[in-house]
């Protein structure tokens, strides 16, 4: 196995092997490289001992005792946070939308819920009337239905565009 391997890649020298031991332990080596270290350590007492020393050292390093911050540690930090300026900034971020996307830029009658619902109802009734033969003319039906849908559609589209712009603006700020 090891001879077959040595035909593909030359064996490591001890210096090369010891340079790779830390990464070998951390699992940071590519498979073939890791295999070469494994084979070298298996056959070389010096490098096996060095590996043992590193393992022991790393185990100790990873078990250093943890210290608790003093009791009043958090208070001074939390007292110094400029909460208000973050809140003020958050308000500014929210307001960043072009004027025509503000809800108020639509005429009041179009925004009124009663108008939007009534318009939608008219459109539905017109289409239903055409389907049942009460309204003979398709062109008339289309005009009536379209007119009925205008307030609701305008309101919905504007809302969608506003949310999109806000979302894009926020992710733009973060990038």
């Amino acid at each position: 196995m090891s001879e077959q391997h040595s035909r593909e890649a030359p064996h490591l020298t001890c210096v090369e092997c010891q340079r790779s031991l830390q990464e070998y332990l951390d699992g940071g080596l590519e498979k073939p490289e890791s295999m070469r270290v494994f084979l070298h350590v298996r056959d070389c007492t010096d490098c096996a001992e060095e590996l043992g020393r590193i393992e022991q050292l790393v185990a100790l390093l990873e078990s250093l005792p943890e210290r608790e911050p003093p009791a009043e540690f958090d208070a001074r930090i939390l007292a110094s946070v400029p909460y208000d300026s973050y809140r003020a900034m958050a308000g500014l971020r929210r307001a960043r939308v072009p004027v025509f996307l503000e809800e108020e830029s639509l005429p009041a009658w179009m925004r009124a819920r009663a108008v939007r619902y009534a318009g939608t109802a008219i459109a539905v009734v017109a289409v239903a009337a055409r389907l049942t033969g009460l309204l003979p003319d398709t062109a008339v039906t289309t005009v009536v239905a379209a007119a009925g849908l205008v307030p609701g559609a305008a309101y919905a589209l504007q809302g969608m565009a506003r949310r999109l712009v806000l979302a894009l603006g926020q992710s733009g700020e973060r990038a």
Partner: peptide, 21 residues
């Protein structure tokens, strides 16, 4: 970033030991 106090407290709880040590 929205100024939420509890969020700052939570970040602190998460990292105080690591940074102090």
């Amino acid at each position: 970033k929205l100024g939420e106090e509890a969020a700052f407290q939570e970040v602190l709880t998460r990292y105080r030991a690591a940074i102090y040590n």
